[in-house]
């Protein structure tokens, strides 16, 4: 276990060193995030007509959902995109062989090899938006809710990671899956708005098949005291199921790779 920790520290310190080589990227990223967030807020404001509600959610409550979405989007830019996007490159250039020959778990290596600090400001902005929205919505933060929200955020992160990893792992068969992750990203964008803003069929889709609801809507409901224990358990259960699926799919993909690749 100690070896894994030490490896992780080395991974991330080299990642920081790479980023320092390209300082201008951080500025551009910051500008892009600021523009994108103000655009999203402007768009959200358009949905608030005379009744001042979107699927039963007030403006402040919807801001919480936007904030959570921004946090996860930032997590994707910091962690998922740089790592899981590199799997395709590894397969195409044949350097996956080097990873497989290291005496360390290959999924660990591929999932945590690097970090892109350029995405961190987005996480910060998302958290700030979440805090502001919660304040406006009159959320009373107690220790149990805080713990529950943290658990739900972890579960959401795990679900997002597993989904992304599942798609990235298919690059063992189809070398170009870059576009498949774009489809995932497009569908994830639905998490910007509370689940209730969607028609019933889509609600089902976003809860069960592509559980975007557990990333943004459910944690917001937890903060608002509107999510019951069954919802929490369902979220946790889904996270475990998705992670197990990602793990076993990777082992299956590796078996294929070692028996069929040339």
């Amino acid at each position: 276990m100690g070896r894994y920790w030490r490896t992780l520290r080395r991974f991330w310190s080299t990642a920081l060193a790479v980023q320092l080589e390209y300082q201008a990227n951080v500025l551009i990223e910051l500008l892009a995030v600021a523009m994108s967030l103000s655009g999203s807020l402007f768009l959200l404001s358009l949905f608030y007509g005379p009744d001042q509600t979107l699927g039963g959610w007030s403006w402040a409550q919807a801001l919480m959902v936007q904030g959570l979405y921004t946090v996860f989007d930032g997590m994707a830019s910091t962690w998922l995109r740089p790592n899981l996007g590199a799997i395709v490159t590894h397969v195409r250039e044949g350097t996956l062989d080097f990873v497989l020959l290291k005496p360390i778990d290959s999924q660990f290596w591929l999932s945590l090899r690097t970090l892109s600090p350029a995405g961190l400001p987005e996480i910060g902005l998302g958290l700030a938006l979440l805090a502001w929205g919660s304040l406006q919505a009159g959320v009373v933060l107690t220790l149990p809710t805080l713990l529950m929200v943290l658990v739900m955020l972890l579960a959401g992160g795990l679900i997002l990671y597993s989904l992304w990893f599942l798609i990235a792992a298919t690059s063992i068969w189809f070398v170009k899956t870059w576009n498949a992750t774009e489809v995932l990203r497009a569908l994830l964008a639905s998490g910007r708005y509370p689940l209730n803003a969607y028609p019933p069929a889509l609600r089902l889709l976003f809860t069960v098949v592509l559980p975007v609801a557990f990333l943004t809507t459910v944690p917001a409901q937890v903060l608002l005291g509107a999510a019951g224990a069954p919802m929490l358990l369902a979220g946790l259960g889904l996270a475990v199921v998705f992670f197990a699926a990602a793990r076993s799919f990777w082992l299956f993909a590796l078996r294929f790779y070692t028996s069929a690749s040339s």
Partner: peptide, 12 residues
């Protein structure tokens, strides 16, 4: 050198 340090950690 950075890659070497990573390898050192990976191989313990």
């Amino acid at each position: 050198m950075d890659s070497l340090r990573v390898n050192a950690a990976v191989y313990g």
